[in-house]
């Protein structure tokens, strides 16, 4: 539906390092559109996918387990949750507040990981399929 890329591919301009990459032309099809099938199996894209999975999979499992544990303990281990910790503040309220804290920690960790490990790799993959749209 969105056709943002020009349909004609111009010859690569010297001076742009990425355009000189030998395999870049493989990732643009005859109409100058990105060849998604080729990108999907490209090593750089697979590396990006691995990096995404390496963070998201464990982080998601971690917070789901932690949340479900909290819910199940609240439902079936009310006595344990009632144990006082600081004055009248009990285990349940503390765990509930810690849920909020871990959410913030995972959020900031993901933001940092994306900036350092994902965004540069996204740029690499994008460079592979770059047409000269900036020059157009």
């Amino acid at each position: 539906m969105t056709k943002a890329l020009p349909s004609v591919s111009r010859p690569a301009t010297p001076g742009f390092a990425t355009f000189a990459e030998p395999h870049h032309s493989l990732l643009i099809d005859g109409d100058g559109e990105p060849d998604f099938g080729a990108i999907q199996t490209n090593e750089e894209f697979l590396a990006l996918k691995r990096r995404v999975t390496r963070f998201i999979l464990p982080a998601t499992l971690l917070f789901l387990t932690w949340y479900v544990t909290f819910v199940l303990l609240s439902a079936y281990a009310a006595d344990f949750m009632r144990t006082p910790l600081f004055g009248t503040v009990n285990v349940g309220l503390t765990m509930g507040f810690l849920q909020i804290v871990t959410t913030i920690v995972i959020t900031m960790a993901y933001a940092r990981y994306s900036k350092r490990r994902l965004d540069p790799q996204v740029e690499k993959v994008r460079a592979l399929a770059e047409t000269d749209e900036e020059l157009a």
Partner: peptide, 15 residues
């Protein structure tokens, strides 16, 4: 599917 996966992660083709 290839287009959606590549585009979802990188934004290639989305403009």
């Amino acid at each position: 599917q290839a287009e959606m996966e590549v585009r979802g992660l990188t934004g290639i083709g989305s403009g």
